[in-house]
């Protein structure tokens, strides 16, 4: 499955991994739940060992200076340590939860102000209708399904997702670099996510 995914890998290519992402996810998710429930230092040490080196490499790759990258890494892992009880394995995979924290730390740092976000504690917040057991089952495989769905995207759509999420470029920067109108970038994004949704639904 990883080979089908080659458009989004860094130029060095994929090194031989012994664990599949799913197996790794399982351990990470269990550790994060344990940390949230008991404050286990062992669980946190395992999460740290798994995530810190990869987060650091991810932070450094787009020109964030070494000291800025360390600050983002430190703040991210501190939030993981303090907020693990907020992790809900039904709602996202463990690495997505940690990655989202890292992205927010980085965004807030660049903007010098927190990005506005919905707050589930807000009395005006409207929660989702309670899920059926069946939907819960589907959710747990989303990460694998999404990975698979992305492999069917045409190269020009995958390219734009990679430029957005891996190279962290704005739509305007992408349009300029590819020499296409902004509207084309937007419509490719809409097509890509439409296709990912349709593929995931087909596989469920």
């Amino acid at each position: 499955m990883l080979r089908e995914f080659h458009y989004m890998t860094p130029p060095e290519g994929i090194s031989g991994k012994t664990e599949t992402p799913q197996e790794k996810q399982g351990g990470l998710s269990a550790d994060l739940c344990e940390l949230g429930a008991t404050g286990s230092r062992d669980a946190f040490a395992r999460i740290f060992a798994e995530m810190a080196p990869r987060l650091r490499a991810f932070m450094l790759k787009n020109g964030l200076g070494a000291s800025a990258a360390e600050e983002v890494l430190q703040e991210t892992l501190l939030r993981v340590w303090r907020k693990a009880h907020l992790f809900d394995p039904e709602k996202s995979s463990a690495s997505t939860w940690i990655h989202t924290i890292a992205r927010n730390v980085k965004i807030d740092r660049l903007r010098k102000e927190a990005r506005p976000e919905p707050d589930p504690e807000d009395p005006s917040f409207i929660p989702a209708a309670p899920e059926t057991g069946e939907e819960n089952m589907a959710r747990k495989q989303d990460s694998a399904l999404i990975r698979k769905a992305m492999s069917v995207l045409p190269p020009e759509q995958l390219r734009i997702i990679t430029m957005s999420f891996y190279e962290e470029k704005s739509h305007g920067e992408i349009a300029e670099e590819l020499g296409v109108p902004l509207g084309t970038v937007k419509s490719r994004i809409r097509l890509a996510f439409g296709k990912i949704r349709a593929e995931v639904e087909k596989m469920q």
């Binding site: 990869r54 690495s95 997505t96 890292a102 409207i126 989702a128």
Partner: peptide, 28 residues
């Protein structure tokens, strides 16, 4: 997003997509 579970689902899906790129990143 605070009042729309459907758009929050889309955000969750996009966050999963974004985090695949972290999973693909090799440590230094």
């Amino acid at each position: 997003l605070a009042i729309c579970p459907r758009c929050r689902d889309s955000v969750a899906m996009m966050e999963e997509v974004a985090s695949l790129y972290l999973e693909e990143t090799e440590p230094l």
